[in-house]
Nucleic acid binder design. Structure first.
Lengths: 237, 237
DNA sequence: ACCTGAACACCGTTCAAGT
DNA sequence: ACCTGAACACCGTTCAAGT
């Protein structure tokens, strides 16, 4: 009778490593613990493997992060070419904000990526195609894309930087901040916190669609005016 | 004759540590080596001291980073209250971009700061004061400030993410990117790179003032329209 | 081909000890 | 009060070795 083969590590089922499994687990760790929790050792541990095994599938940690960022781009809406370009751009921007808020660690990784993945490339290609189809020439497309992305990334950056998560937190943080400031110092900041940030129903995020439409409408108006003449249509018409 | 007192460490003059010296040297290291080069050991080394000495002046590394970010805010233009708010906001935004590009490590630290320093507070107070003096009410001020900052931070984020520094680099990077993409894949991206990014005189940064004025003018127009009615003044006037 | 154990050269931070 | 040396609990990554 053959002796029962005892598996070497009972608790950690040894499934074969694949890029897909690594990326999926890495995403879960980053979402749960933040980017600082995503270490090669932790990632390997959750995969039931030693850290060094990861280097057979990814050149280094940076390559793992590249794949993660590409995954986030894959979660965004892919805009379609249409004359109603603002509504497609709006939907894309809204989904981009959602993806970046859902994965708060991603925004900080964007600027260090040098190797855009296939999903990132497809996303950018689709957005460029939508702008071109709307009638923007290449310089106008560049301006529109840069401005929209600036707004989205910058808004999320501020949103993630807020030291509170819900309206319940606001009071504590605001009180702390105002206590740290002197008596008559920073009157406008005091007014803003007391009169706006602490007002019932305050939500930083609720401003996102308003500012977004401001940007999109301004770009659309500029497009309608053919070329870049920026003079106000003031005075008698 | 008294034996000549030999200084304990010849090469490293032992000046007394102060917060100011630490911050100044930390800023120099971050500018030169990036934020990854700014370690407590490296910082201490440049100050002729052991790493642990720093903990007598700062609670931890985070407190050092707080002070650094405050320094960057201190380099920005402080806007004054004026009816011509757009020109003050423009000058402030331009100086903010300059400071953030001068210190590329700073933007990534903004979102993790929980304790704004005095220069940061003064900067925010001045900007809020300028918007209020221009006639914005509190909700309008919140929207304007959030939108302007979103544009500035997001634009710089993209600018810093560009994998090239000058027009000389563009060709190499673009070629590499286009080689990595398949044949007929991503046609709009190909067109954009070949027809715009590689065109002579291309500069991503040159778009900054254009997009900025787009945002500022849109906010100013909204202000003129009293309240948030966003309908286009189309049709016979 | 894939995974491992041990090691290397680092981190931020704590602690007890020096002056 | 201020600075130090040694140590702790980590990092990413290399390398030679196992199967």
């Amino acid at each position: 009778m053959a002796a029962p083969r005892k598996s070497k590590t009972e608790g950690a089922p040894k499934i074969r490593l694949t890029r897909e499994r690594v990326v999926a687990v890495a995403l879960a760790i980053a979402d749960a613990e933040g980017s600082s929790g995503l270490t090669m050792r932790a990632l390997a541990g959750r995969l039931g493997v030693q850290a060094m095994s990861l280097y057979h599938h990814f050149a280094n940690k940076d390559a793992v992060l590249d794949a993660l960022v590409d995954e986030v781009f894959g979660e965004m809406h892919t805009p379609r070419p249409t004359r109603a370009w603002t509504s497609e751009a709006r939907r894309t921007a809204v989904s981009a904000r959602e993806a970046l808020v859902r994965h708060p660690w991603a925004l900080g990784l964007l600027d260090s990526r040098r190797a855009p993945g296939p999903k990132s490339l497809a996303h950018h290609d689709a957005m460029l195609g939508t702008l071109r189809a709307a009638g923007f020439d290449l310089p106008q497309t560049a301006l529109a894309y840069a401005t929209i992305d600036a707004y989205v990334y910058g808004f999320v950056q501020q949103e993630l930087a807020l030291p509170f998560d819900g309206p319940a937190d606001v009071e504590g943080v605001a009180g702390e901040l105002m206590a740290g400031m002197g008596e008559g110092q920073f009157p406008h900041l005091m007014e803003f916190i007391a009169g706006h940030a602490l007002a019932p129903g305050y939500s930083f995020g609720a401003q996102f669609p308003v500012g977004l439409d401001l940007v999109l409408d301004a770009l659309d108006r500029r497009l309608g005016r053919e070329d870049g003449d920026d003079s106000e249509p003031r005075g008698g018409c």
